[in-house]
Design a protein around this nucleic acid. Structure first.
Lengths: 240, 240
DNA sequence: AGAGTTATGGTCAATGGGACCATAAGGCGC
DNA sequence: GCGCCTTATGGTCCCATTGACCATAACTCT
């Protein structure tokens, strides 16, 4: 293989890892899955779950495997997309480690047990992370910030919000996803109108669900549309 | 370094490369820079320019270096953003090579000379590539398709179109960028209204430029805004 | 029954955008 | 100079979308 290298003193092989930003919405909070690292470097620090990519698997397969191994989550039922590659030569003190960050979104998931090189795994509230100025290992703060921005933007022009809901859901639940992630209240009536007028966003199941209090709500499941055209824009922001 | 590996039979180091999808608009055509490969594998095939990432540079620096070495382009004046990582274990017959794809956008650039491992470099028209069903090396067809989709989408909600123009430009030139990339005509009057009403998209220079024929057009330079809110949507498409 | 709560449905006005028309300001041929 | 062609610029009309509200429906709990 070295035969193709132009300059073996400058080019050398790298370790390739995947890191996962796994989000879910619980109540009115956007949560991200963190682990407490169980080995050096950054032993004891909170970090995003992740690990080495094996030689025979695709990057996506590696992400799905780490999802299972480190977070105990079956990835077949959640949304997984690539966020990007992070390869600053100094990002890992061990040497050149390029990581491919993945974004995973799912409905309220069980708290997972710790994985192989994690002492424990837990859901952390995003707003709490920010307010406590919590530090993360490696360049994970950057990855997490990029992931958050990606989710926020993707809610606007795709139907990805349904990935945070279960098989069937009410429009209030769907709206709660938007509110938790955008951090702003949306008008229930206008939200409803927008969602129902967007062909293929959701489709009614015909069933109802009783909330803890109040009128029963109709249930929907995700529709066939992925792109929302026109998009569902967040206004200038008007908290309530 | 091996001390951190969990299973040295399954995890091994990978080669990391960058590949570049460099776009420009010439006339009414969207062009992409291709090279003719000068060595195996895929010797003689057209491919996206790219090469190995060196051990001491960031991924972005590697992309800028390849831009210079393989395409003879000074990257300081064009838009460069990461597209994503491609790591199918079979994508390169030499073995495990993960590539980080970058998207580069610039104004009409000079035809570059061939680089180190390229026999020659040339601009290829996107529409021609499609109509001739041209094949590319590796998984570059996928990367190119992803890059194209990314540019098209990014025109909608960012001011990235100005990256295809020179320092100063007329609104017709800017519109021509949209038309070439979206493959559809836009109404000059409505386009103008939209661009000028979007605060910070462009700012007038006060100067004019004479087109080959017709009334002189006012010149603008790019403004401070990056996100367009509301976005500049392509309609359902109505060629003319 | 009445209050509280959530879901659903409708109105009204402002905005933005697509289709289209009109005018301005150059060059060119005669 | 005068008309003609071309491109740039500016404006109008109308409809779809949407934000701000108001009103009603359908539950539970007291």
């Amino acid at each position: 293989m070295d035969a193709w290298l132009k300059d073996s003193t400058e080019v050398e092989a790298s370790w390739v890892t995947v890191d996962l930003a796994i989000f879910t919405v619980r109540g009115d909070q956007l949560m991200v899955l963190l682990i407490e690292r169980g080995l050096e470097p950054f032993d004891g620090w909170p970090a995003l779950p992740g690990g080495y990519v094996q030689k025979s698997e695709t990057l996506r397969e590696g992400a799905l495997r780490e999802l299972r191994e480190e977070a105990g989550i079956d990835g077949s039922r959640l949304h997984l997309e690539q966020l990007g590659a992070y390869g600053d030569p100094l990002r890992d003190p061990r040497g050149r480690v390029v990581t491919i960050a993945y974004l995973a979104l799912g409905p309220d998931l069980p708290t997972p047990v710790g994985g192989t090189d994690a002492r424990r795994a837990y859901w952390a509230s995003l707003s709490q992370l920010v307010s406590e100025a919590k530090e993360l290992a490696f360049d994970h703060p950057v990855i997490l910030a990029d992931a958050l921005e990606e989710v926020r933007r993707k809610l606007e022009y795709t139907a990805v919000a349904t990935a945070f809901c279960g098989e069937s859901f009410t429009l209030s639940e769907l709206r709660a996803v938007y509110e938790a992630i955008w951090g702003q209240r949306l008008d229930p009536s206008n939200f409803r109108r927008k969602v129902l007028n967007t062909a293929g966003f959701v489709q009614p199941t015909g069933e109802q669900r009783l909330p803890p209090t109040g009128r029963p709500a109709a249930l929907y499941r995700r529709g066939s549309a992925w792109l929302l055209n026109p998009p569902l824009l967040r206004g200038n922001g008007h908290a309530a």
